[in-house]
């Protein structure tokens, strides 16, 4: 069968991955068009990292079809991996090696041609802002520096597709900003990015498109604005109330088909601009009115309880 030139950098169709205790990915359908940054949002255990591992064929699907840059996985996974840069959730840098050596090894692994290797490593060091720490052993770098190095390692061969698994976890706000600009730069260069994250703000700022993942499947997909509009409406009404009263409000809202979420001491009614008159009267005026956010969508769609 000839490989059809596709506009999708990543295609997953009905992909299922079972572990003995849990089905980590459960009939997942996901397409990532070339050149966009897709934010993969989901609570702990939703299957984000497993999805990433499926894309590098470090995990083999039990069912379904996976294509990366038009290549069929797992048969053509090696070619696919050559085109990808991967930044894993867990730091797996070589602690015994220096920053430069870490990058050199991966420049070799990614088969950067000999003449270009030195320049590629220097560029990656600059990207990680570690040029003056090139000779420092990784074990002696700070957490933020390591994270930057980890990201630069996945970019040393200037891939057209980058998988970022929670790239900014545990970083201070300044370093996070820097990484955001880096990701923005990647997109400007036309690189496709699949980025998982817990930080809603990160997705709102960086992602062209968001996919909300829960229990191994995508439960919503769209641009952040579209998702907010569709699932949380324009405005949210917050009512500060006791736990019992919150439960009552939740029941009333559920009856009227209005989505709610707990927000600590208050309960939030989404799509409050569409609230039925009767409900509005029963509840009285809210304590706070605020614009709906992607976080509201995230919590409502992926469930509040952490399993």
């Amino acid at each position: 069968m000839p490989i059809v030139a596709s506009m999708d950098a990543i295609v997953l169709h009905g992909v299922t991955k079972r572990y003995p205790d849990v089905t980590a990915v459960d009939g997942l359908d996901l397409e990532v068009p070339e050149g966009i940054c897709l934010g993969l949002l989901g609570p702990n255990g939703a299957g984000k990292s497993t999805t990433m591992r499926l894309l590098t064929a470090q995990s083999l699907a039990d069912e379904g079809e996976i294509r990366v840059m038009g290549l069929r996985l797992p048969q053509q996974s090696k070619q696919a991996r050559a085109l990808m840069g991967v930044v894993p959730q867990l730091d797996n840098l070589d602690e015994e090696l220096t920053a430069r050596e870490n990058l050199e090894v991966f420049a070799h692994l990614y088969r950067v041609p000999r003449q270009e290797r030195r320049a590629a490593v220097d560029r990656a060091l600059a990207l990680a802002q570690l040029t003056d720490r090139a000779a420092t052993r990784t074990v002696n770098l700070s957490g933020g520096m390591r994270r930057r190095l980890l990201i630069a390692r996945g970019l040393v061969h200037q891939p057209r597709l980058v998988l970022l698994d929670e790239p900014t976890v545990g970083l201070d706000p300044q370093v996070r900003q820097e990484l955001w600009s880096l990701i923005v730069r990647l997109r400007e260069e036309g690189v496709t990015t699949l980025m998982s994250t817990h930080y809603i703000e990160e997705a709102e700022r960086l992602a062209d498109d968001c996919a909300l993942m829960s229990h191994g499947r995508i439960v919503a997909r769209g641009s952040p604005e579209e998702l907010v509009k569709e699932h949380a409406g324009a405005e949210v009404a917050e009512h500060y109330a006791s736990q019992e009263r919150q439960a009552e409000i939740a029941a009333l809202a559920a009856e009227a088909g209005v989505p709610t979420r707990r927000t600590g001491p208050s309960i939030s009614l989404l799509k409050s601009e569409q609230l039925p008159r009767s409900l509005e009267e029963a509840l009285g005026p809210p304590n706070v009115r605020r614009p709906a956010t992607l976080e509201d969508v995230f919590v409502v769609l992926t469930g509040e309880a952490v399993e």
Binding site: T56, Q58, R81, V86, D94, F106, L109
Partner: peptide, 10 residues
């Protein structure tokens, strides 16, 4: 280390 390497074409 091997997890890192196997994400590359190895």
């Amino acid at each position: 280390t091997y997890d890192a390497m196997l994400a590359a074409p190895v």
